[in-house]
């Protein structure tokens, strides 16, 4: 039943826009923050704690009349590397996309090193992505590495 309900959620609703699926339920609010969805005035529907074979509990976001450029959407790869995007035009999926971790992360994440200048003075963080499979970020300032499990979204 749940599966059917899930299915219904995916196909109903939007005429034009973006559906972001396969978000781990526990990072939904981080994804909302990263994409700045709290500042969008178009209709948005959220579903969370939906059963997922791959993720356990997943979340889904449906955004009417909203489209993202790759550079922006790829930011969510830090917390939701398996996220999938469906671009909807006229109730039909016209394009499917997967997110890709960018080479450089500006802002968004916090450096894991408490002695880093970015954690002690007002500075926009900056990282080089040195591994994309198991995400590893090297801080541009203190040069320390922040691993996937330590990534904290600002």
């Amino acid at each position: 039943m749940l599966h059917m309900k899930d299915k219904k959620m995916e196909v109903s609703a939007i005429e034009n826009g973006t559906v972001i699926d396969h978000i781990p339920a526990k990072v939904l609010f981080k994804v909302i923050a990263i994409l700045g969805l709290d500042h969008i005035d178009k209709p948005i529907t959220f579903g969370t704690n939906l059963d997922s074979k791959k993720l356990g509990k997943k979340a889904i976001i449906k955004l009417s009349e909203t489209f993202f450029i790759d550079k922006d959407i790829n930011k969510i790869a830090l917390v939701a590397p398996q996220a999938k995007l469906n671009i909807i035009k006229n109730y039909t999926v016209v394009e499917k996309k997967i997110v890709e971790v960018p080479d450089e992360i500006i802002g968004i994440a916090k450096c894991v090193n408490p002695k880093c200048i970015t954690n002690n003075e007002k500075i926009v963080t900056k990282f080089q992505v040195i591994s994309k499979t198991e995400v590893q970020l090297r801080c541009h300032y203190c040069e320390k590495i922040t691993n996937q499990e330590n990534i904290e979204i600002i």
Binding site: C111, K115, C116, I117, T118, N120, E121, I123, Y141, C142
Partner: peptide, 10 residues
């Protein structure tokens, strides 16, 4: 010279 890491780059 500064005790915080990354201070010189900044």
């Amino acid at each position: 010279r500064h005790p915080l890491e990354g201070s010189a780059r900044f």
